[in-house]
Design a protein around this nucleic acid. Sequence first.
DNA 1: GCCAACCTACCGGGCGGTCGGTAGACTACT
DNA 2: AGTAGTCTACCGACCGCCCGGTAGGTTGGC
Lengths: 220, 220
Amino acid sequence: MTALDNAALRAATGAADGEQDRRAEIYRSAARIFHRKGYHATSINDIAAAVGLTKAGLYYYIKGKQDLLFAIMGFAMDQLDEQVIEPARRVQDPQTRLETIVARHAQLITQDSSALTILVNELEGLLPDDRADIIGRQRDYVDFIADTLAALRDEGKVVGLDPTVGAFSLVGMILWISRWYRTDGRLDGDEVVAAVTRMAISAVLSRGDYTSAGNPQESG
Amino acid sequence: MTALDNAALRAATGAADGEQDRRAEIYRSAARIFHRKGYHATSINDIAAAVGLTKAGLYYYIKGKQDLLFAIMGFAMDQLDEQVIEPARRVQDPQTRLETIVARHAQLITQDSSALTILVNELEGLLPDDRADIIGRQRDYVDFIADTLAALRDEGKVVGLDPTVGAFSLVGMILWISRWYRTDGRLDGDEVVAAVTRMAISAVLSRGDYTSAGNPQESG
DNA sequence: GCCAACCTACCGGGCGGTCGGTAGACTACT
DNA sequence: AGTAGTCTACCGACCGCCCGGTAGGTTGGC
């Protein structure tokens, strides 16, 4: 749950030691509250109160509400790059790569969905330039999945499925986890990740060709 | 695109004829703007301007912003009941029933996603009682899908898939359509509906048992 | 003359954000 | 050792703005 520490580290440009902790706490709290109430319904006062500051005190650490949102989304996107895309890129076999993508993305969400959920739900809260930046990175991600599906099609494992539609559909399935998964629920995170990964692979592979291509979890 | 006319009909309790059109236009516009900008980011003035009224003029037709939101969500839920759940309930065969659910729900979204998307994205904008109402109806829907998956499991067509996880995952896949489908895109609505339905069925059915159980579109 | 269908003008309040301060830790110089 | 200066980490008070909502008209068709 120290997921946003890096975001604060990136955001602070050459500040003292203790400041890092405080700033990280602010970003984490903001992400949690944005996630729960939504960006527009969250006031700067809400965030300030959550970290035990006044509004004016909070502004010592942040530039503004929109920068806060953009920083959180940027961090979430970095997380996706580092924990999902980069590891998957190193996997050659398309099916194993797809399993890696789905499992790792799902795993991120079951671990801490705040930033990743804000990333997809609060795009309209950003300034146009920032939004273009984030949307571009999201499109790259979908393209990456679509390319993987196209590779599976070239192998004959996927038949008659539009790679783009397939990619979007898988992403939707994964993102939706954050809406129904509860840490204290009937299934634990690993079980949910496994179930969703199995469904995702089954959704795209054509009948009669499926054999598990290994456990993509082992590389994390 | 006259999808919200009924909402206005339900909302207006014994008013004159012409008022219906105006009220319907207001609900439709509000749904469109809520969908585009989000509930909290939309002001009453935005809606008033969109229908060519001042804010005070708008209040002649509506009770308040939150009632507007609840009415739109209630309409969306009614739509789901009438266009998806009820038709599917009349289908006996579980697999055909599942196909009916997915195809009809997807179809609703490709036709006009405003109300249905607001329904899932703006829950926190409601008053507690209203929210409880909507959430209850949504849970009923997921349970209905889960029951259908359980029936498929009893037939041996689904193996090793938790019905609840399966239901949520399918719902996520369907709802996400509203985020990427464009009316003027490469694929038309029917193609998208068909592709997603195929993926959904493929996602839940166990290998080697799938045969298309008919075209669920023909009953609508 | 009446009523549906609006409008102008306004209200209290909360918003994001800023300003001028200041307590206290730390440093520098005598 | 004492003290003046400096900087970090805040706070109280305030700003202008816009919000949802309302009071009290006005107008045009019946």
